[in-house]
Structure formats: structure tokens, C-alpha cells
Simulated scan of single mutants.
Amino acid sequence: MTSLSRITLAVLVAAGAAASTAALAQPAGSQAPLTRAQVQADLVDWLQAGYDPLDWIHYPANAQRAGAIVAQRRAERAAGGQAQMQPQQ
């Protein structure tokens, strides 16, 4: 393999890695980055759901349990908001 083809291959690999990293860094379905207030509100939701960032002994289970609770509460809020918007017959 010539040095030119090695350089070309290295550039292509680096470009692919950079593109995939940038794509994974964006939240799914979001067009804009989160604001500081949104991140702080998200942290409050997690703390209210029982997540303790200092509890490193129970870390995976603690975070997964709190994440499930936060997701359930958000789904209930979204469903509740839609139910209020629909006219009752």
C-alpha cells in the first residue's frame, strides 16, 4: 500500500468517525440543543423520581429505575394534556 493511499484511508476513517460521533450526540427527534433551564428541569425530574447521583454502589439499577419513572410521568402528562384538549361528548 502506498503512502498516498494510507493517508487517504486515514482521512476517510477520521471523517467517518467524526460524522458518526456528531450524529450520535444529537437527541433523537430534536432540532435544537437543550437549554440550561431544560437540563436543570430534567435533573429535578430525575431527583424527584429517586435518582441519587452520589449512589454509585447502586448506579445502574438506580438510574434505570428513575429513568423509567420519569418516562412514565412524562407519558402520563402528555396523555393528560391531549385528553384535556379533546372535546368531551
Rank of each mutant, 00 (worst) to 15 (best):
G67E: 06
Q89T: 12
D45Q: 14
R36P: 04
G16V: 08
G16N: 03
D52T: 10
G67Y: 05
L12A: 10
A75Q: 14
P53L: 09
P60M: 05
I57S: 11
Q38F: 07
I69N: 04
Q26L: 07
A14L: 13
A28G: 00
L24N: 05
N62Y: 07
A22R: 01
Q40P: 00
A23I: 03
G50W: 14
A14H: 02
A63M: 09
L34P: 01
Q31K: 11
A22G: 01
A25C: 01
I69V: 15
I69W: 02
R6E: 09
Q31V: 11
P53F: 09
T35R: 03
P27G: 02
A61C: 04
P53E: 04
S5W: 06
Q84W: 12
G80N: 08
T8K: 06
D42P: 00
V70Q: 04
R65I: 09
Q26F: 05
I7C: 00
A78T: 11
V13T: 05
T35K: 02
L24S: 07
P87R: 13
P53H: 12
A78C: 01
A32M: 09
A79C: 01
W46M: 15
G29T: 02
G50E: 10
Q86M: 14
N62V: 05
A79L: 11
A83V: 07
S3W: 07
I69A: 13
Q88V: 15
L54N: 14
L12C: 06
V11K: 00
A63V: 11
G16K: 03
Q82T: 12
T35C: 01
T2H: 06
W46C: 08
L43G: 02
T2N: 11
W56I: 15
G67Q: 04
Q88S: 14
A68L: 12
L47H: 14
A23E: 01
Q48E: 15
G80P: 06
V70D: 03
Q86N: 12
S3E: 09
D52C: 06
L47F: 15
P60F: 07
T35I: 03
L12H: 00
R65L: 10
A10S: 07
D55Q: 10
I7D: 00
Q48T: 13
L47W: 15
G16A: 07
G80W: 10
A83I: 03
M85C: 01
L34W: 12
P53M: 07
A83F: 08
D52A: 10
V39M: 11
R77Y: 10
L43R: 10
A49K: 07
P53N: 02
A19E: 00
L4S: 06
N62T: 05
G50M: 12
A41F: 06
A23F: 09
W56L: 15
P27D: 06
A71I: 02
A14M: 05
V44K: 13
T8A: 08
Q31S: 13
